[in-house]
């Protein structure tokens, strides 16, 4: 359980799959896990920037998602990222929106 938000259960999002034989995962080695988290934060920020949002790793266990004015939510994994992002900015984050795609294609 997460002691801050009281969410029961660990990470079970498919993108950071559990280490079972045959399952594709980048979470097996500690260093890989940290590297993957950093990489995820870096790439997510390129998508989030046009929405005025930024993501930061928090203690290697959760992420902090913040608006430019500092409104912040703690999220567990990718499954919680987009619902939280939409809550914070009050509009949909649609990857099929041409403006969003153009921003991603232009991303630095």
């Amino acid at each position: 359980m997460c002691s801050l938000c009281g969410v029961i259960g660990g990470n079970e999002h498919w993108a950071d799959a559990v280490a079972r034989p045959g399952v594709y995962t980048r979470n097996t080695e500690r260093v890989d896990r940290r590297r993957e988290r950093m990489n995820r934060v870096r790439l997510a920020n390129r998508v989030l920037a046009p929405f005025g949002l930024s993501l930061a790793d928090w203690q290697g266990t959760s992420f902090l998602l913040s608006t430019r004015t500092g409104k912040t939510e703690i999220i567990e994994d990718l499954g919680h990222l987009w619902p939280a992002a939409e809550r914070l900015i009050g509009r949909p984050c649609d990857p099929l929106d041409p403006a969003v795609m153009a921003a991603v294609e232009r991303a630095p």
């Binding site: 999002h13 993108a15 995820r40 990718l78 990222l81 987009w82 939409e86 949909p92 649609d94 099929l96």
Partner: peptide, 17 residues
């Protein structure tokens, strides 16, 4: 396919659609 980018993309797509 970059796995990290793919994870971000598919979770974003599924969240909305």
């Amino acid at each position: 396919i970059d796995w990290t980018a793919f994870g971000i993309w598919l979770s974003m797509l599924l969240n909305r659609h």
